[in-house]
Design a protein around this nucleic acid. Structure first.
Lengths: 196, 196
DNA sequence: AAAGATACGGAACGTCGTTCCGCTTGGCAA
DNA sequence: TTGCCAAGCGGAACGACGTTCCGTATCTTT
């Protein structure tokens, strides 16, 4: 119950100094490549940008998905923590829910291809999917239940389903000006309202 | 303005008999492999199932996407034609719209991975995307405009956006019992209703 | 300074979609 | 019927991908 360190935090103590440095470099390089070419950018591109060999990437991140998780961990964390905060600061649970979803959508839409890879059934990316679900679903459940308890939305929708739906709607939202994920997500949430 | 034949219909006249036979075999094999392993099944699997070499596939279908189009062309056609029919047979345009969307969703959800590949930004699949849009968007527009004219839905949503949204919601709807695309699509359409 | 552990680079592997090319075969003219 | 040749075929080969492997280089400890 001490360090844990089951994954992608920058660096647990007791690694070689150069290794720690490389991990940092790698995260920066990955982040910048993701911005430039999307999350689906080839591993070799990231290695090149960081000036290391591909083997080095895999030493630090067992799979591409783990690298992606590591890059976005802080933002996912922030999104998760924003949930309860919104619930306190908002007029009604429904307002908190919509704002939280907006946050989530903003996050997804600004990361090229992240939403797509999130739902990809390609083996390997299920750990990415799981990470997002594990971290965000409880928050979604809390908001949904609060809004349902307040009678603002029709009950019976699982947070899992909502989050996947929202995630799906964000796919391809970049590189297509004719498609505005935000508008559709807004419709979806509007459909949740209690017809009262 | 005579035959046209720009593509994937079973066989234009004046091809060798064995070629025509192979094309048929290929379509059957592809259809059955798609059912068994999804649309993303490797080309080699389809070739094997059909008992031909991969070269033969590419002689008949310039790209994987064209093969997929050819396999599903009839069903897409049927869906497109169902639009105006529903508009006539239904009580209201909104009812026609929801039923048509149901048809579309049923189609997508029962074809493993088709929805995913439809939105994939992998090069080559844009022709698949285009085909669906070209064929179905006008129908969607007609239904949307009818419903809007009847004052049943809030106006201002483009058919393109709706269809992409619905398509996106169908991604991964198979192989995940916790995710029911139909429910979410229903919410989306419910959100379209005029708040009146 | 030497040894051992740790990390590195990048060649190599298996899979994918797609292309290429030497061989086979169906259809036609003689 | 025979022979010719365009049309068609099979599958090796290519380039890109994610991932693995291992000989070498570097850090750290004594």
């Amino acid at each position: 119950m001490n360090d844990g360190g089951k994954g992608a935090e920058p660096a647990a103590r007791s690694k070689r100094a150069d290794a720690r440095r490389n991990e940092e470099t790698l995260l920066d390089a990955a982040a910048s490549v993701f911005v430039a070419s999307g999350v689906e950018a080839p591993v070799r591109d990231i290695a090149a940008k960081a000036g290391v060999g591909v083997g080095t990437i895999y030493r630090h991140f067992p799979t591409r998905a783990d690298l992606i998780i590591a890059v976005y961990r802080h933002q996912v964390e922030a999104c998760a923590e924003a949930g309860p905060a919104l619930l306190e600061s908002s007029e009604t649970p429904y307002a908190a829910l919509t704002q939280w979803i907006d946050l989530f959508v903003d996050f997804l839409v600004t990361k090229h291809g992240l939403a797509a890879v999130l739902q990809s059934d390609n083996s390997g990316f299920d750990t990415l999917h799981s990470y997002f679900i594990d971290r965000l679903q409880p928050v979604g459940t809390q908001l949904l239940e609060a809004a349902a308890a307040a009678g603002e939305i029709r009950p019976g929708l699982e947070a899992y389903e909502l989050m996947r739906g929202v995630g799906n709607l964000c796919i391809g939202a970049d590189h297509d000006p004719r498609y505005d994920a935000r508008r559709l997500v807004a419709l979806l949430i509007a459909g949740l309202r209690q017809p009262r």
